[in-house]
Design a protein around this nucleic acid. Structure first.
Lengths: 137, 137
DNA sequence: CTAGCTGCAAAACATTTGCATTTCG
DNA sequence: CGAAATGCAAATGTTTTGCAGCTAG
């Protein structure tokens, strides 16, 4: 987590790097799970209790627009966030809520092929698998 | 839309077939788009103005549990519904909101392969593509 | 007859917004 | 200094719920 890096990224767009934003970036970046806005707020409040949830929401939206973080919806009624890593997808364990990340090159190809066939340029997409651990009978 | 069919399906589970439920089933079944709860309510109110939105929500949830309809989330903050048809996916036009349905056998294979590799049995999944119409330059 | 449904209005929830005050550059 | 960002609380929009009365089976 190199603050100067983000400062530069912001400066280019005329966006200010504030103490709050930096704390939020770190909170998401340090998370190995996929926290929702409330969890991000708790983690930032641990560092600076004065950061309000409105700022967290505003910042998360901003960071998502800048492709610094990714916003997900795993179907439980609130958005979840993670720092932008290499491209991957998620498999959600319906029993435990545990999230398994995976990559698949063939999947990416097919996605592009389908869009092409339909005459569209993809802007983004969403793919999640939901399942339960296979039983060894 | 055969009412007796659904009546039987309900009876097996000890669930009552009411006039309201039947109207809601038809409203969703007759829709060629992917209406949200509010749109379903308007369509049912056209037939019986006394049906409340609470009943619509309760019924949509019930029907989704019974796999009679499917619930989608296209990222605009409200759920959308469609009658359970043959399995397909959606491409959402980010400019117009138009929804294109598509099927792809290869995609289904890959999905199963991935789940298998990760040691999971799939219960369901979610795949949506978002894009804009290709320009002919 | 009675368990299950309904309609209404109120509650719950995540997210957004208006505005006065503060802060970054 | 001035534009942009913050914090608070109130507003929003969707979905859920409590409860008294209604209905299917």
């Amino acid at each position: 987590m190199n603050r100067a890096l983000f400062e530069h990224l912001f400066a280019v767009k005329g966006i200010k790097m504030t103490e709050q934003r930096w704390i939020i970036i770190q909170a998401v970046g340090d998370s190995r799970d996929h926290p929702d806005a409330d969890q991000v707020t708790m983690r930032t409040k641990a560092i600076d209790p004065d950061i309000g949830i409105a700022t967290v929401y505003r910042t998360l939206t901003l960071l998502a627009d800048l492709d610094i973080i990714q916003q997900h919806d795993f179907g439980d009624g609130r958005a979840r966030y993670e720092i932008q890593n290499d491209h991957h997808h998620h498999l959600i364990d319906v029993d435990t809520g545990q999230i398994v990340e995976f990559k698949d090159a063939q999947l990416e190809e097919i996605k592009s092929r389908i869009a092409k066939e339909l005459g569209y340029d993809l802007t983004h997409h969403r793919l999640e698998l939901y399942g339960r651990k296979k039983q060894n009978l």
